[in-house]
Computed example of a mutant assay.
Amino acid sequence: MERIPPGQIVTERFPILTYGEEPRVAPEAWRLEVGGLVEEPFALTYAELLALPQVELTRDFHCVTRWSRLDVTWRGVRVKDLLERARPKPEAVAALVHAYGGYTTNLLLEDLLREDVLLAHTLFGKPLPPERGGPVRLLVPHLYAWKSAKWVRAIELLDHLELGFWERMGYHWRGDPWREERFQEGPIPAASLRFRSKKT
């Protein structure tokens, strides 16, 4: 099976790309809020996150700037487990992920519910360093890396697609590396993603 998406170059390095200032959030100060269109909104501390069932997985990591790092090992908590606890409302179709420092990115709910999407706190067996998004970042390995928001602080479920920071700058609304969805070239399907009740 082919591992390298089109247009990507494999590197042994692991570049760090950050727009703006790098937030510094101590683990004891970190909080995650899960809310929006959910039945049971809640918040987690870092200690509470570590007390949940943990998953370790190894995945390839693809940056929109055309480099790929293979076999990156992460440890964290499945976002699917957190969303099941929150109980998304039927009209929820997408999410806006918020980070410390003001960064945001959008994701479809179906992408967040994949088994290998994590809130990661460990990289290669060590606590996630601040420059890589520590203490906790999102990991969405099947999409370009800008979707894996660093310093994540909230997941907000919505009934429509609301573009995040890079998406408003012209990056693709989804970011599938196998389709080379780097930049938005056609209309953004916001209207088609807005929830419609079964009665309409």
Rank of each mutant, 00 (worst) to 15 (best):
M1G: 12
E2G: 03
Q8W: 11
R13D: 15
I16C: 13
T18V: 13
T18L: 13
E21V: 14
P27Q: 04
P27Y: 02
E28C: 15
A29Y: 02
A29V: 05
R31K: 11
L32V: 08
V34Q: 07
L37R: 15
L37A: 14
V38A: 11
F42N: 10
A43E: 12
A43S: 15
L44A: 03
T45E: 08
A47S: 15
E48C: 08
L50R: 07
L52Y: 06
P53T: 03
F61V: 06
V64F: 00
V64A: 07
V64N: 08
V64T: 01
T65G: 11
W67Y: 15
S68E: 01
R69H: 07
L70G: 04
L70W: 04
L70H: 05
V72T: 10
T73G: 12
V79H: 02
E84A: 07
R85I: 09
A86P: 11
R87K: 15
A92F: 12
V93F: 13
A94F: 07
L96E: 15
L96Q: 15
V97Q: 03
H98S: 09
A99F: 06
Y100K: 05
Y100L: 11
Y100M: 15
G102Y: 03
L112M: 09
L113T: 07
V117S: 01
L119N: 06
A120I: 12
H121I: 05
H121A: 07
T122L: 02
T122R: 04
L123E: 00
L123I: 02
F124K: 10
F124G: 15
P129D: 11
P130V: 15
R132V: 09
G133F: 00
P135A: 12
V136Q: 05
V140L: 01
K147E: 04
R153M: 07
A154D: 03
A154F: 03
E156C: 01
L158N: 02
D159G: 02
H160Y: 05
G164P: 08
G164Q: 08
F165Y: 11
E167K: 10
E167G: 04
R168F: 06
R168I: 09
M169D: 13
Y171G: 09
W173G: 11
R174A: 14
R174S: 09
R174W: 14
R179V: 03
E180F: 11
E180C: 05
E185P: 03
E185S: 13
P187Q: 14
P189R: 12
A191E: 14
S192E: 15
S192P: 09
S197L: 09
K198A: 13
K199A: 15
T200W: 10
